[in-house]
Amino acid sequence: MAYALQQLINGLTLGAMYGLIAIGYTMVYGIIGMINFAHGDIFMVSAFIAVTCFTLLAAADVSSIPLALMFVLVVTIFFTSAYGWAVERVAYRPLRGATRLAPLISAIGMSIFLQNTVQLTQGARVKPIPPVIEGGIEVWNTADFAVQIGWSQLLIIVTTVVLMVAFNWMISHTAFGRQQRSCEQDRTMAALLGVNVDRTISLTFMLGAALAAVAGVMVTVYYGVVDFFIGFLAGIKAFTAAVLGGIGSLPGAMLGGLLIGLIESFWAAYLWAEYKDVATFGILCLVLMLRPSGLLGRPEVEKV
């Protein structure tokens, strides 16, 4: 029981991170209907930026953890958004209106490009940083097992929840949110009504990248190691999460992320750890067979 509780906590932490990345996929899909395959690598880039920041801070002997975290978050979000913007500008915008597959291929190319750029400029080795946040609270102590929530886990879960709430509010209450939703429904009409579609799409990419950056910082804090390959698997998992929750739906992305995180940690804890990815994909297939538009996605009525 205690062990299960621990898995629940671990799963939620993992799921929160997947969810943050998944939002980037789901928003981009919602607005331009493409899988932004490079999004996982944007996340990877952000993790590297975070590593550099933490190392700089360590060299500067900054001891206040909240201050350090704020600094790293702001810097990482800034640079990662720039990457998000640039990727859209270079690889996707010229392809608007082309066949559906063209931006996908361009995105795969971008993903390969980013991976190799980071490998070349930052090195292929794993980058470890000293633990930023240590310790935690013991929630429950039974005779043979102590359930612990690490401070970093708490931080991740709380940050994610806060961001989710803020984000949902933004999409439903601000001018940008309205423009974003209008572009999602009908880009031509939105443009006719004076929405700057290009800017809205750019902003969407930057926001997606910003959330991925938060996830990148969290991953760095939580695991303490990054390498240039983490983007691929995290990207695929997050995309799976977005599809599982119903692509285009923000709460769906979060729910999908949490589910994938939970499935992974429970499967790894109780069944075969090496097959945890098989479980993730297997469940995805199952869900899609029963509900082709995902858990929270609006079922597509077949327009005849």
Binding site: A98, I105, S106, I108, G109, M110, F113, N116
Partner: peptide, 17 residues
Amino acid sequence: MLLFGAAMVLIMVWKPG
């Protein structure tokens, strides 16, 4: 591989069809 990725993007942007 860097060239490979860049080429994929560039060819696609140049000839989307």
